[in-house]
Amino acid sequence: MGLYADVPALRVRQVVGDVLVVLWVALWVAVGRAVHEQVSRLAAPGRTIEDAGRSLEDGLRSAGREVARTPLVGDDLQVPFESAGDAAASLAAAGTAVQDGVARAALLTALAVAAWPILVVVVGWVVHRWRQVRRVAVGRRLVATPAGRDLLALRTLAHAPLRSLTDDDVAGWRRGDPDVVTRLAARGARGLGVRPPTTTTAVEAVSRPG
């Protein structure tokens, strides 16, 4: 099953459409990344708080170990420093929590901004292209057989604008005229994006009693 039609004009439109969809996706991925980077900058205060908390915790615990060496009262003097160190650790943990929250917010914001334009266009285009691929596949099967070409001719009569048809088209199809059937089948094939029947296949066109 081919992805593109046989008719050059339709094939070009399909290729251009595919390229435009890829560019659309790339554009919105870039927008999403830019939004993510901008929101992620809000995590800077959290990193500052974490660094300050870690530094303060290390200093207080180090000071506590030093005063713990004081004879007789060292253990008692160490307790306030350990408590202060625990408070500093809590401060550092709060800074980490701020960064985690900002990271989640950055991801969700980027997805909210970029995901829906990508999904709407990609899903719509995939459905559209799938229908085109199916039409081309069906058209190729019809063109390959005399009965299929006759069906394409009938489809042309049923769907073509009335002003584009002539009495000879209708009468020729009813008679099973190979030239008329092939001409109508060629119009139907091009409408499906398929290469029209060749002059060789015209001879094989199905005959229909008048």
Results as ranks from 00 to 15, higher is better:
G193W: 07
L157H: 05
L72T: 15
W173Y: 14
P8D: 06
L72S: 15
D76H: 11
Q78L: 08
D76A: 15
D18K: 12
D100E: 12
A158D: 08
A114F: 12
A160L: 07
L157Y: 05
R13A: 15
L23H: 15
G210E: 07
A34T: 07
P209I: 13
A205N: 05
M1S: 14
V194S: 11
E204M: 00
V22T: 07
Q38L: 14
Q38S: 13
A158L: 11
A9I: 11
G32I: 06
R183Q: 07
L77N: 13
S40M: 02
R174A: 10
R149V: 05
D100I: 02
L151N: 03
A186C: 12
R134I: 04
V73K: 03
T182V: 08
G172R: 03
G101S: 05
A110Y: 09
D167P: 08
A137K: 07
V12F: 10
A106E: 05
T156N: 04
L42K: 06
G2Q: 14
V35D: 05
V127H: 08
D168N: 15
P178A: 15
A9R: 14
G74W: 01
A94M: 03
R61Q: 12
R33V: 14
G139S: 02
I118C: 14
A94I: 00
V120N: 02
A52W: 03
G17V: 06
V39P: 03
R54L: 04
D18E: 14
A34S: 10
V203Y: 02
A94L: 08
G85L: 06
R155S: 09
V121W: 13
E50A: 12
T109E: 09
V180F: 11
G124L: 10
R33Q: 13
L154K: 00
H128R: 10
A144R: 04
D86T: 06
L10V: 09
A103F: 04
A68W: 13
D75N: 13
A43G: 03
A153P: 04
A30N: 11
A202C: 07
G64C: 10
L20S: 12
P71V: 10
G85I: 04
A160Y: 01
G74D: 00
V39R: 05
L3K: 15
A144L: 01
W125F: 15
H128Q: 09
S207M: 01
R129I: 09
A103R: 14
R54S: 02
L56E: 05
V39A: 04
A112W: 06
A137R: 13
L108D: 04
A44R: 10
G210P: 03
E82W: 00
A52T: 05
G210F: 08
A160E: 08
R175C: 02
T198I: 01
A26N: 09
D75V: 04
M1C: 11
G139K: 02
A153M: 11
F81K: 02
R11A: 09
R155M: 05
G64Y: 06
T182R: 14
V136T: 12
V138P: 09
L119E: 07
P80A: 15
A88F: 00
Q99L: 01
D169Q: 14
I49D: 07
R187L: 15
G101Q: 02
D18G: 09
R47N: 00
G59R: 15
A94Y: 01
W28V: 14
